[in-house]
Amino acid sequence: MQNLGIDVLFKGSNMMRLLGGLWVSLRISLIAVFFSVILGVPLGILMSRNSRIIRAITRLYLEIVRIMPQMVLLFIVFFGTTRVFGWNLDAEVASVIVFSFWGCAEMSDLVRGALISIPKHQYESAKALGMNSFAVFFFIILPQTIRRLLPLSINLVTRMIKTTSLVMMIGVVEVLKVGQQIIEANRTSSPNAAFGVYGTVFLLYFIGCWPISMLSKYLEKKWKND
């Protein structure tokens, strides 16, 4: 055990601290996912209507989010706003803002893609049966959209959880940062701690993301031919 460096986790409250760090990561991603869905779904619906102006603006937004590394966004929001606007933004709040900004873009694009992939004839057959627009949307279009959307958005959630490891760069003490602190603190007593601690962090990420990823695979298979 000594040479794997796992022993440090059982010293004091180290394991609890690591789990606490994991919770910080999950909390940031879950709050960001919440905002991404709340804002991304209506935005996606808006984007599926073809208005030139909306399309131009959202295209620009999507491109910015795609081109810009998340880290740069984090730095801009956290350090940039402090300097320019004099805001004293909490690092975790800054992280939630950046991740929501990113998630909302991706989510809206997924919603738009799912909506426009529903054939026109689905709307027309439903209308031809006497359904009003409300019924057409809620009973015919929405269920099919959700089926197409869910596996993809679950994939987005796991990507967001993984990417939260970046927030330690602006001083948020999340799971990876806690891991580093534990390793630093035990540098002399357990020089192999890096392996054990990072290995555990890996496992924690795995435990966090794997069930979500499995759920998405399962849904994808279940709805494949719909």
Partner: peptide, 13 residues
């Protein structure tokens, strides 16, 4: 006024 289309669009779900 019932209507049936060429591309038999049943509701897949």
């Amino acid at each position: 006024v019932g209507m049936v289309f060429q591309s038999y669009e049943l509701f897949p779900h």
